[in-house]
Design a protein around this nucleic acid. Structure first.
Length: 215
DNA sequence: ACATTAAGTGATT
DNA sequence: AATCACTTAATGT
């Protein structure tokens, strides 16, 4: 599919036509395989991603180098953290890795500011993007602070299956434990609970989220 | 058949 | 919820 067609499909109702044309003109189309690092902490940001397909996980690191998930970027999203970083040539405070095979348009950051003045639809997009990212982060904080590990695990599995558009996750208990900053034993026990509650099914290297199974 | 890796479990803090 | 120590099960060579 052409860049124009993809953009139209994903953003047709979001951006006014003149803006769509400009995006196609300056945006560089990039296809990135699953699991590729895109931005690391400390990197200088030159472009802003517009996700056409796939998903990206955005993480931050605490003082002990524990990574934690901030939010996912999906089709039609852009990165709020990048937007602020852009202004004033700041460095990235986040790390971004593709969660699935991903297609995106890279927009040079100077265009961002230009469009902010020029296009109403761009302003709306930026603010809405901010708003939804903010809400996702609040949700992420909420579940860490107020919920137990079992709830966290279940949400983690659901979110992961959701962005992959696949209820069957190929993942080990150990990998899950690492991402939730806990131990493998804890995850194994909680996985068993979810299994008994009929919320998931499991096999070696595999977890299926039943709530997301197509009937 | 053997080694390696993933997952399950009881006991302790 | 974390850690230890150990077992059992699945998979690769």
């Amino acid at each position: 599919m052409t860049t124009a067609a993809l953009l139209k499909e994903r953003y047709e109702y979001i951006f006014e036509e003149a803006l769509q044309r400009e995006i196609i003109e300056v945006g560089q189309l990039r296809k990135i395989a699953k699991g590729m690092p895109m931005i690391d902490i400390g990197d200088t940001i030159t472009h802003m991603p517009l996700v056409l397909n796939g998903a990206i996980r955005v993480m931050q690191e605490d003082e002990n180098e524990n990574e934690y998930l901030l939010y996912y970027l999906e089709i039609g999203d852009s990165c709020a953290m990048t937007m602020t970083c852009c202004m004033g040539g700041k460095r990235s405070t986040i790390r971004a890795i593709t969660e699935t095979d991903t297609v995106l348009l890279m927009i040079p950051i100077h265009k961002m500011e230009e469009w902010l003045v020029k296009y109403r639809s761009w302003r709306v997009f930026v603010f809405e993007s901010y708003d939804s990212r903010m809400n996702e982060m609040l949700e992420a904080i909420d579940i860490v602070v107020f919920h137990n590990m079992e709830d966290r695990l279940y949400k983690y599995l659901k979110d992961k299956a959701m962005v992959a558009h696949n209820p069957i996750l190929s993942i080990t208990h150990y990998q899950i434990a690492t991402e939730l900053n806990t131990s493998r034993v804890v995850i194994s026990r909680l996985i068993k609970k979810l299994l008994l509650d009929k919320k998931i099914e499991t096999n070696r290297n595999q977890v299926t989220v039943l709530a997301l199974m197509p009937k």
